[in-house]
Amino acid sequence: MVTSMKKKNFFQYLLDGWKNKPLFSTGCALLVMIVLQTLALGFDYPSFGAWFTAWGRNWINILRNNAGVGIVALGMTFVIISGGIDLAVGSTMVTIGAVIMVMIDPGAHGWLQAIGITGVPAYVIGIAAGVVVGVLLGECTGLLVSKGKMPPFIATLGMMKICRSVTQQMTIQSNPTVPKGFLAITGTRIGGELILPIIYWLVIAVILYVVSKHTAFGRQVFAVGSNERTSRLSGVNVNKVKRRVYVLMSALVAITAVIQISRIGSMDYANAGSGYEMDAIAAVIIGGTSMSGGKGSVVGTVLGMLILAVMNNLLNLLGVPPFLREAFKGVIVIAAVMLQKKENNN
């Protein structure tokens, strides 16, 4: 009798959580994924220690591989909450990456090398230049969307085409290399593990969480996304908020570009970052952010990104062919939105 009561209460709790907490179902889904993934990894190890090491290493791989897109997804959260969308992230990353590469190239064609700047100062200047280019590209998109009153989908579709195409043409002759020192940005081992990209992702997530909840800008992004008219009539500079959202997005893309260059030691201008926009949007949507703006959270996006990442890992462990994995992504996005719809109706 007592146990059945307890059981009922527990289910009641689950049911209430389902109905009330927006991230409850997302968290549950992630938990289920993690359990499945752990089972798929198996327990066929000589000792618990060996199993734990394998399990941990698997996790570090998952997180490190997704840190770059994860950071883009954080920016995408702000863009989508503000009522917009950014399709250009993959292409702007290539443009920013090309600028950084040409700056830090230790070969004869490296810009900084040519004026005698090498080593750490060159890296700092190179990264700064990348961020500046990112901010400028973000300003362009922001101006088109705010002052130009252009639908974000169109404005960023245009930016996407322009950035990658121009970058490819401009870099047709050059073949820059990345200096060894630059690889240390992500390649330095902390506690014997390659976890720096994960730390960058985490730190940025925490900062952006605070920005979204505890700064005027963060709250204004929600306000503008939910009701632009009321926001303007309350003295919010709607155009400025929109512009800043795209600037933030592009600055984060610049950070991702640095991480990618440092990890891979090169950048393939034709293919790098393609599909980032869709993966980032998928993570944001799975994390419960509304496509129509005004609702969403940074924490949700991190959970959404993890769900995608863990699922990918799970499919890998199960030996699902790579071509088929994208289909699972599609299914999970559709399922997530269907669940959210149900929650909103309650």
């Binding site: 709250r219 929600f222 306000a223 996304g225 939910s226 009701n227 008219r229 009321t230 926001s231 009539l233 309350s234 919010v236 005004g294 609702k295």
Partner: peptide
């Protein structure tokens, strides 16, 4: 349409 922001809470609406 013009006075409230429906996705935000009372405090945010009352302090924007």
């Amino acid at each position: 349409e013009n006075g409230i922001i429906k996705d935000m809470d009372i405090l945010d609406n009352g302090s924007i």
